[in-house]
Simulated assay, not measured.
Amino acid sequence: MYNRFKYVEYFGGPNFGKKFLQKQATKQKKKFSAGLSVQKTVNIETDVLDAMKSNDFFNRYLDPNESVFLSRLSMLYGKLDLDEQKALFLNLVRAYVYLPPSAYESLYNKAYAKVRKEFPNAKRIVWLPTTFQFFQKVSSNGESFITLNDTKSSDLMLYLTHGVFQYAHTGGNAQSILKNASICSFNNSLGIRPKNPNDTIVMLIDDFIGSGQQCMKAINKYEKNGIKVDGVMSLAILETGLNLLKKRPNIHVFVGCVAKDASKIASTDELKNLSASLGISKFLPNSTALITMIRTPNNTLQIFRNKTKSAPFPRGI
């Protein structure tokens, strides 16, 4: 459902997309207002709208006044009775990171500028995904090689990398070699680092890194198969994941922005009680991220991404 709202701007044109979102917002508003007094409806929407307007990401990438998300967030907020839970909910809205497709290139360029500053002499950059499945194969002549398969959001970043380097001026003398894991194979480390390995850096890339566990596994697997990883680049990352990756002294981390974590705003019990008040029976303590990108990550706080029609940023399509 949410993805449909995201892409309508791109497939139907800006005017069609705006009208479509306004229509959806009107439907949500009517549903939200049903059974509530006019004054209570106004008060609820005013509180939520003020919180959204104080959020730089909402202001930058959508119009809070006309957003379907205003109605959806207001529906949740209207279910709360306790003042402390209302205050917590609004604080979570203020901290939420909203990154639609239109935000990707600017975040990419921001992170990539840090890569070039750290590696100014690199002539060749090899980009590899952070999520994959390893397959060890043997060719007809007995030579062993590795293939990588599995389509994930990191594959999208590989294509974005290809587009940015092909159509935009990036500066420097770097040559981007697209190594798309779903379609390429290479002979152990020889295909990654040529005769002069000092001219080449190997970067793992993704749009979002949460706990950092998956990324760390990727680094370990690459290095186990003879591929030295120099750094990780991501559009967004949780502070938890950033701290984990920094424990590897030889791995440089480059990000466009650091996403907020609800566990830094409230205690587990407070988040659990808030979730229960909003109909979440099973609270997931490891799902406390406050972020939505092209798709809402599965470790985003459940009240924002629960698979319901009224969820502000539903993960399901």
Rank of each mutant, 00 (worst) to 15 (best):
Y2H: 12
H162K: 14
A289E: 05
Y159T: 05
N15A: 10
L88V: 00
S182Y: 12
Q213W: 08
N299Y: 09
Y98V: 01
G231A: 04
T131I: 09
L148V: 05
F135A: 08
K221F: 09
P197K: 02
D63P: 02
Y77E: 01
L290F: 15
S281Q: 13
F32A: 01
F20W: 12
E270H: 11
T161N: 15
L158H: 10
Y167C: 04
Q85T: 01
V38T: 13
R295F: 13
Y159E: 10
L156H: 08
K282T: 10
P197T: 05
T292W: 08
G212A: 03
A262Y: 06
Q166I: 02
L245Y: 04
E9S: 09
Y159G: 07
L190N: 10
P129G: 07
F119R: 02
Y104C: 06
I125A: 02
T46I: 05
P101W: 11
M1A: 10
N273S: 13
I237G: 02
C215W: 03
V255D: 06
A259Q: 02
N188L: 13
N250Y: 14
S153E: 12
I183V: 14
L245S: 01
R4E: 14
C215L: 05
S37D: 13
L290Q: 08
N225L: 11
T46E: 14
L244R: 06
K152F: 13
E270A: 15
K260P: 05
S54K: 13
D81E: 14
L49C: 05
S234I: 03
I291Q: 06
Q28D: 13
K86S: 05
P129I: 04
L242M: 10
I183P: 00
F89A: 01
A311E: 08
S310L: 12
K86G: 04
R295E: 14
L90G: 03
S277V: 00
A289R: 08
H162E: 14
K40A: 14
L82I: 07
L70G: 04
E84K: 12
K195S: 10
